[in-house]
Nucleic acid binder design. Structure first.
Lengths: 167, 167
DNA sequence: TTATACTTTCAAAAACAAATGAAACTTATT
DNA sequence: AATAAGTTTCATTTGTTTTTGAAAGTATAA
């Protein structure tokens, strides 16, 4: 296999992984492309490599920047904007985890909290409802917490200790 | 808030969480409904509660069964099938994690493994490509491993130890 | 201030994913 | 073996999300 094939395969795979996890294909593909690109790329470069339109490139680049996982760069004396990916993978994971927690987990936790508060529940159904939603709340908030700890202190002794325990 | 409202809110929220994580809305909603239902439900019940068609219900029920997170039950003397949800939440998480690993992470790992094997890489681009894909492989396989350990041995001393460390 | 190089926006189109519903199928009952 | 009760399938429709592309917007340089 040669580089261009391998590169393409990686980009496609990353795109479909993205899709399966609720991230648009193009967004994941642009990210993949920037990860394996040793040089910063312009919007034109990205459009050409992935065969996508200007608008599509622009929107997804902005989205990736909002997620904090790619960056705009300026070359001295040039008008054009260039883009590069976060190149520390632990840091990448940390940002993704943080963002998904903020956008998806936290709001769900608020709802679980709220609905599990249900008052005057006499019926069996209501009792069961409270119990289950409270359990989900407990579980999800613990998982969220754990993820936060793991990703926040990637280099701390706690993570190293865990890693050792898990060997 | 009364039960029916709370229930509805929970089902909607769970549905949209599903969507954001790449699971179809109806599939997540059926699951939510079964979780908070103290009694087993028939397909008719589910169709009525969620206002969905027979086909939709049938397909998503099968899907949930394939994931191993809901079960078919038979009432003695009745032809009709009933459904119930896995009611241990740790077990639920374990099954979801295992399934997503099998369907999405493992195949991605295989590709990363393969493309990072790229030979005769002289150019800077090829060297960089190998390095990055190898890093991603390392990271993803470690994360996958960790998740497996955590979910597999929910009750083991290792998990308890980690939990204590994380307090 | 005008031309130029580049980026962003957004309405419309295309692509994709999910849902419907009727027909086919299965299994049990008379 | 015919009827009934229930379930599954799948071609078609509906709905949602993504993408396009042209127009509007911005910033720089001449």
């Amino acid at each position: 296999m040669e580089l261009s094939q391998a590169k393409n395969k990686f980009i496609q795979t990353w795109g479909s992984l993205g899709t399966q996890w609720g991230i648009s294909k193009t967004m994941a593909q642009i990210h993949a492309l920037l990860i394996v690109s040793p040089e910063v790329l312009s919007m034109e470069d990205i459009m050409a490599e992935l065969h996508i339109s200007r608008g599509n490139a622009s929107m997804n680049l902005r989205n990736l920047i909002d997620w904090g996982i790619i960056f705009k760069e300026y070359k001295p004396g040039e008008r054009r904007e260039y883009f590069s990916a976060e190149d520390n993978i632990d840091e990448l994971a940390r940002k993704i985890a943080k963002e998904r927690s903020k956008r998806e987990i936290k709001p769900t936790l608020r709802v679980l909290q709220e609905v599990s508060q249900l008052e005057h529940s006499q019926t069996e159904e209501a009792v069961h409802f409270k119990k289950k939603t409270a359990e989900l709340y407990e579980f999800l908030s613990r998982a969220d917490n754990m993820l936060e700890k793991i990703t926040d202190y990637k280099e701390s002794w706690i993570t190293k200790t865990i890693m050792k325990l898990m060997k």
